[in-house]
Write a protein that binds this DNA or RNA. Structure first.
Length: 572
DNA sequence: GCCGTTTTCGGCCCGACTGTTTTCAGTCG
């Protein structure tokens, strides 16, 4: 079993938890957590990098020691230090620290006093009233732990961004109506446009924080009030979704927005920059001694630190600070840059509208063209077309183009890539199309080697243009199929093919990390909605958000090109 | 365990809230 980066990151996180419970130097613990974040965010597997002779100690937060431990995991599949510590500290204690309110100190105390070493026995002890017998733990804490265990077990996953919006927008509107509220904005991963959102961080400026919070906690949807002070409050909505509200004075708005937007890794980097200047950066501002030298806007803070403004999507400490320093931050692609959509369905397969209706909707959006990509014949469940039906649609589109002035409907098809790597329609028929979107819709569980070979073989077909939803993942529902995406991206570049960024909020496939790789290898990315209705065309904004997180500029995106240039880019 | 515009040692982000204290430890973000 090859060891992937996620395994290494998980081992480091576990090691950090257990070391912390043992009372190890907190900075050593943090070093393992930082290393987990670095390894978990690397686009290439550590094993492949080592095979290429890369020096992992050059990575941020990885020194000689941790580079050695990564190599050990790649070579042996395990980590001696972790196995060693697990003989002293029961591994279940690591899980117990996942319960909110339980940190390493309490977990250790509970373990030592009561012999508890997993969540199940913790729950029994809480029910029996044994936790409250420990020093520093009372009945209230015991009740909270019990409640959190229940929540942990029925834990909601992170919400899709679109689902989070449905909660966030009305809540934000409610907060803006509270008397005394000047500004209200959502920060956190929501503002960074992440594909999923774990909780909402709402930032408010107001003079009287306590009054705002008193009103906030009476919002209809609030289930539990976790904490309630004069500047911050945490509630759990009835849906189980957590919301943190912070109130700051107006003069601190920019500093607070910066601080609560994160990511934490980005913040810590810039805080270190501030320290180098002898300054202090916190949620109230940038301070020289007691004097605030910036903080009303984020721009002020970046200015003082001699950096250009860094877009929230980029704030992951994945090279954006270095790029800012060099003056080479990307100018991110916007919705206005998009000239058309390359992937949508009509009533000819599983869509809800006709070609004409979809085309008119696209034209109304200001697009210059729209590609129609109904399913091919193997997709029986999705009303896949026969060869005759596609031929008829081609004629229909030709006639429609005669009629429409300026706007152009492109002839295409979402062609199934069959398990052996062949395409679902004959080359003769495919040759009549402007381009194709080729996708995998079955045989998901092939080995990595076979799945990769399948796509590479499909790409050998001269009528293959764009790989649709390249990994097939459905966020929170199923992982993608096992495939060597980087090899496929390089092959696409060589052959003149492309990988789409599918903008469906539950797909966002390819992800941000692979967008960035595409940019680095010079492979343009088409952003497509995969719309099944007129409204579906609006999903483009989720694709744009993801593209921004992947550093894509307009020039990196295929469907920002004028029609003739794009059609030329399709020719192989 | 990492790291260097205080550079091979001595730092490492920092403020708010809660509960159980009686001045603060633990946890969180």
């Amino acid at each position: 079993m090859p060891v992937h980066n996620a395994d290494i990151a998980a081992a480091f996180r576990r090691l950090a938890d257990l070391l912390e419970i043992e009372g190890e130097n907190p900075f050593r613990v943090r070093a393992y957590r930082n290393a987990a974040a670095t390894v978990g965010g690397m686009p290439r597997d550590a094993g492949a990098m080592l095979a290429d002779g890369a020096d992992l100690a050059e990575l941020p937060g990885i020194g000689d020691d941790l580079a050695g431990k990564i190599a050990e995991m790649v070579e042996t599949g395990s980590l001696h230090l972790l196995e060693d510590i697990e003989t002293r500290v029961p591994p279940g204690l690591s899980d117990m620290t996942r319960i909110p309110g339980l940190g390493p100190k309490r977990v250790k105390a509970i373990h030592e006093a009561l012999g508890i070493d997993d969540i199940e026995s913790l729950e029994r002890a809480a029910r029996d009233g044994r936790l409250r017998t420990l020093p520093g733990l009372g009945a209230k804490t015991e009740a909270k732990i019990l409640e959190e265990i229940g929540r942990y077990e029925g834990a909601e996953k992170r919400l899709l961004r679109i689902d989070a919006e449905h909660i966030a927008e009305p809540l934000l509107a409610f907060i803006r109506e509270i008397s005394g509220v000047k500004q209200a904005v959502i920060a956190g991963s929501y503002r960074r446009q992440k594909e999923t959102v774990g909780d909402l961080d709402i930032l408010v400026t107001a003079k009287d924080g306590a009054a705002v919070i008193a009103r906030f906690v009476r919002y209809d949807e609030v289930g539990d009030i976790v904490s309630k002070g004069t500047t911050r409050s945490t509630v759990i909505l009835k849906s189980g979704f957590q919301v943190d509200l912070r109130v700051v004075p107006e003069v601190s708005y920019g500093a607070a927005l910066f601080y609560f937007t994160g990511s934490r890794a980005h913040n810590i980097e810039l805080r270190k920059q501030a320290i180098k200047h002898g300054w202090k950066l916190n949620e109230y501002g940038l301070f020289e001694g007691d004097r605030r030298i910036a903080g009303k806007t984020e721009q002020e803070i970046y200015d003082k630190l001699a950096l250009p403004f860094i877009a929230p999507q980029l704030r992951e400490n994945r090279g954006e600070i270095e790029a800012a320093r060099r003056g080479s931050l990307p100018e991110l692609v916007t919705l206005e840059d998009m000239r058309g959509d390359l992937h949508c369905h009509t009533i000819a397969s599983d869509g809800k509208y006709s070609v004409r209706e979809m085309a008119e909707a696209a034209k109304k959006k200001g697009y210059a063209w729209l590609g129609i990509t109904d399913h091919s014949r193997s997709q029986t469940v999705a009303g896949g077309m026969s060869e005759d039906e596609l031929a008829a649609q081609i004629d229909e589109i030709d006639a429609l183009n005669e009629e429409l002035s300026v706007f152009r409907v492109l002839k295409s098809c979402e062609v199934d890539i069959l398990p052996d790597g062949s395409l679902d329609f004959s080359d003769g028929l495919l040759s009549r199309l402007d381009y194709t979107v080729c996708s995998i819709h079955g045989a998901f569980d092939l080995s990595r080697e076979k799945q990769t070979a399948r796509v590479l073989r499909a790409m050998d077909n001269p009528y293959f243009t764009i790989l649709g939803h390249a990994t097939g993942r459905l966020i929170n529902r199923r992982p993608g199929y096992d495939i060597d995406l980087e090899a496929i991206m390089r092959a696409a570049k060589e052959r003149g093919c492309y990988l789409e960024l599918n903008a469906q909020p539950s797909r966002l496939d390819i992800d941000d990390v692979h967008c960035k790789i595409a940019r680095e290898i010079g492979l343009k990315v088409p952003i497509s909605t995969d719309a099944h209705s007129v409204d579906g065309l609006e999903m483009m904004r989720f694709g744009i958000a993801q593209a921004g997180r992947g550093w894509l500029e307009a020039k990196d995106v295929l469907n920002t090109l004028p029609l003739e240039k794009m059609l030329k880019a399709f020719r192989r």
